[in-house]
């Protein structure tokens, strides 16, 4: 693995995670390059979500450790961690009668102490987050009355309101139509480019990963098969190894981005 050392704030060092007798991640080492968009790809059950939760400090490690700026996550308080890392779980849940604005405001939780009043700066950050995700018109609407896509964008807005440097997103484009999928991925791209955020996202669509991510990690059975720039990773051999599919790789005539055409 040729990770550019020194530019990775978040690292997994030889971690193993398992439930009961079954190992979900084996001896996995990965450095998340700072200021880049890393996509985790792999078949169902390959450990993508578990790896993401391990990066967020949400799983008990059997071995190894995850470090942020050289500190093991287990030594950091949850609040401190939440100021650096924000997580969007695969199926987040909040009460249906909660308004979008109130949901997004919860993202400020780690930045507020017991007696800290809600500040205009908090509000400005929430407004920015809602504008970026295009839900600012929906601020007063309860979650139960949103479409799937609107709901997903509201959750992403909450994650952004946490103003953490590192965003961990578990399948952020599920429930979205193709236009909104591209909107979200484009938004993530812009967050990386304009605000220097670091993003790790579990994605399902190989072509989306190829187009929007800076780096792709292919996982299979709890191990990293390969990781690197999309051009190097999206290859028929590696896709066959990981997904057991026969694929042809074409290149977009406009910008040369690899496009995977799966045939079987």
């Amino acid at each position: 693995m040729s990770d550019a050392a020194g530019t990775a704030r978040l690292r997994a060092h030889a971690i193993s995670v398992g439930y009961r007798s079954r190992d979900v991640l084996h001896d996995l080492t990965l450095a998340v390059p700072t200021g880049q968009f890393t996509a985790l790809l792999g078949p169902n059950g390959s450990g993508k979500s578990t790896l993401l939760r391990a990066f967020a400090g949400l799983t008990t490690l059997r071995a190894g450790e995850v470090t942020l700026d050289g500190h093991a996550l287990s030594t950091l308080s949850r609040r401190r961690l939440a100021q650096y890392l924000s997580l969007l779980p695969q199926t987040p849940h909040a009460p249906d009668d909660l308004a979008v604005g109130d949901l997004v405001a919860q993202g400020r939780y780690p930045h507020r102490r017991l007696f800290t009043p809600w500040s205009s700066q908090d509000q400005a950050i929430c407004n920015d987050a809602m504008r970026l995700t295009d839900v600012d018109d929906l601020a007063a609407r309860p979650l139960g009355r949103l479409s799937g896509g609107q709901r997903q964008r509201a959750w992403i807005a909450m994650t952004l309101a946490q103003s953490a440097d590192i965003l961990l997103l578990d399948e952020p484009t599920t429930y979205l139509d193709i236009a909104h999928q591209l909107d979200i991925l484009d938004l993530l791209r812009r967050l990386v480019r304009d605000q220097g955020k670091t993003i790790v996202a579990v994605l399902h669509d190989i072509n989306h990963a190829a187009r929007f991510a800076d780096r792709i990690c292919l996982l299979k059975e709890g191990r990293i098969v390969s990781s690197g720039a999309p051009r190097d990773i999206i290859q028929p051999d590696s896709l066959k190894e990981v997904f057991s599919i026969e694929a042809t790789i074409l290149h977009d005539p406009q910008d040369g981005v690899p496009v995977c055409v799966a045939r079987r």
């Binding site: 949850r78 939440a82 849940h93 939780y109």
Partner: peptide
């Protein structure tokens, strides 16, 4: 949900 809560610190 639990993950979101812990993610929020």
């Amino acid at each position: 949900d639990d993950d979101t809560l812990r993610g929020l610190g």
